[in-house]
């Protein structure tokens, strides 16, 4: 029994969407997720990968089908139907990408919001770092803190980051520690106040799915919450000179008590009530 073309189109379309969904859900192209941001990012990635797979297989399939089915067999060009356009069809394929990009846009906006991207730039965690000595200074926020729902907002650990050719220096103002590696506690928001000394650098931790340029003259705030203890690379992602490829560091995500121990061992100042409150 021959299947009517409309039903066949519908069946192929459904199969394509199912294949896309299956591939999108099962693809594993990303490194381990180690921040509150990362699972949200991976969710967006899966959705985009599903849509992309469906569109790509569909369009490439149509190209291959056309080239085989409508290939000229003999040297003489056969008579073909002169179709110059088809308005309903053209409206349909204007509508399909429009609906797809609208969906993708709204969905990625939602993800961005859940990552904390829409939080106003000056919130409580930053107030503590805006000292009176530099009141006129502009700050530029990256993705703001994503607090875990249901829990009371924890105080962010303030860390000052200085980027220079070709290193990152981390300064813990409360404990007065200077370190070449970034130690952060798991499960607690961290607020980086980043400045660049010479040229533009970028702070990127692939496992956090987070990147922020550090631009000279524009101190930049970046907040995140690490979740998975471990050692992850910090990579400079903006061309910054000859040794740009070597400008790397490590972020060490520790259990809160290990982090407290590290602070206690390295701090030249005695633990004060305020600093212990910050890290506990």
């Amino acid at each position: 029994m021959p299947i009517p073309p409309r039903i066949l189109t519908l069946l192929i379309g459904t199969a394509l969407v199912l294949v896309g969904l299956w591939v999108g859900q099962n693809v594993n192209l990303l490194p381990v997720d180690a921040s509150v941001n990362a699972p949200l990012y991976d969710e967006l990635f899966k959705v985009l990968f599903s849509i992309g797979t469906t569109l790509f297989i569909g369009i490439v399939g149509m190209v291959l089908y056309s080239l085989t089915r409508f290939r000229r067999r003999s040297d003489t060009a056969g008579e073909v139907l002169a179709v110059e356009g088809n308005l309903p069809l053209e409206i349909l394929w204007t509508a399909i990408p429009a609906v797809v990009v609208l969906f993708v846009g709204i969905y990625s906006f939602d993800i961005y919001d859940r990552m904390g991207g829409m939080v106003p730039m000056h919130d409580h965690s930053m107030a503590s770092m805006q000292t009176a000595q530099e009141p006129e200074e502009k700050t530029w926020a990256g993705i703001s803190p994503a607090s875990v729902e249901g829990e009371p907002p924890a105080t962010a650990v303030p860390i000052e980051v200085t980027a220079m050719q070709f290193a990152f220096i981390f300064h813990y103002p409360e404990a007065d520690i200077i370190s070449g590696e970034l130690h952060v506690p798991a499960g607690q928001p961290v607020s980086l106040r980043m400045t660049a000394n010479d040229v533009i650098h970028a702070f990127w931790v692939p496992e956090f799915r987070l990147k922020q340029d550090i631009i000279p003259g524009q101190p930049t705030l970046l907040s995140f919450t690490a979740t998975r203890p471990g050692r992850y690379p910090i990579v400079c992602a903006e061309l910054c000179g000859a040794y740009h490829g070597g400008m790397r560091s490590t972020v060490i995500v520790e259990e809160p008590e290990d982090f407290a121990n590290w602070v206690a061992q390295n701090s030249p100042v005695k633990a004060t009530p305020t600093s212990s409150a910050v890290i506990s």
Binding site: I59, M62, V63, S66, L67, F70, R71, R72, A77, G78, V80, L81, V83, N86, L89, E90, W93, T94, I96, P97, A98, V100, V101, V104, G105
Partner: peptide, 24 residues
């Protein structure tokens, strides 16, 4: 994102140009 709409139209139109043709 919206650039995808006019670009998509062009690609679908090329596919429709090939469709049913006598392609060398």
């Amino acid at each position: 994102s919206f650039i995808a709409v006019p670009t998509g139209i062009k690609f679908f139109n090329w596919l429709a140009t090939l469709w049913g043709g006598s392609i060398s």
